[in-house]
Amino acid sequence: MSNNPFDVKIGLAEMLKGGVIMDVTNHEQAKIAEDAGACAVMALERIPSDIRKDGGISRMSDPEMIKEIQRSVSIPVMAKCRIGHFAEAQVLEALEIDFIDESEVLTPADEHNHVWKHDFKVPFVCGCRNLGEALRRIAEGAALIRTKGEAGSGNIVEAVRHMRTVMNDIKKITTLNREQLVAESKNMGAPLDLVIKVSENGKLPVPNFAAGGIATPADASLMMQLGAETVFVGSGIFKSEDPAARAKAVVEATTHYKDSDKVLKASIGLKSAMKGLDMSEIPDSERLQERGW
């Protein structure tokens, strides 16, 4: 039996379901996230809303900071590499990170190619806006897919658009016959074998999570009801007024996403959410979701 085959990578993604994965920038925040019930943390130097504000090149985080976070919590620790930057991914693997996010939040290193993720023992998560993009990433070896949304915006509209698009794309191809799937595979730029697989099973071959713009307990409930199996919360927690309380509330709302009384209860008494941006305030050239190919 081969060690670490693809389904062992998917295995960890399965264990993260029904939970909340939180962006943290230091070990204090990591502890707050763990104490609030996060099922994993994403270690990064600047949360997306600050990356957006500060500008400049955004790279893989300082390994020493990541190590400190690994030492301070017992839950899985994820970290981001730039799109196509397989050397950053190799460094993160050497750090024994639990999951690598090949992320559009960082400045892309390669404008044509993503990392060939099958070469790694560590599982990867990648963002997508539609089914074709999701299947290209899975073909490259992603063991987990998330919506891109618009990171650091505090605005759920793009994550909703991407989740609805993926779900509609899946529904559509379950109604097509084989010759139509060949044409569809060409149209969406995705490998035919994966297109056929999705058409037969009516779902992605790996777990499907939501990310990008989630800021409130109701946002988490919305994404779960639209079909997400877990939510990533980036700037939404540590850019809010009371991160510990908001983190716990989002976790509770995610567990009980279909129970409106529980989501209501989680939403009461929270201080201000992050301010957020309307999409019209973000010029096309600054939209992080456009990164990735």
Binding site: M15, L16, G37, C39, V251
Partner: peptide
């Protein structure tokens, strides 16, 4: 089931 025991332990008490 499998998952994160820290999360489960906390939510067992919350609920």
């Amino acid at each position: 089931p499998g998952g994160e025991s820290t999360t489960m332990s906390l939510l067992l008490d919350t609920f």
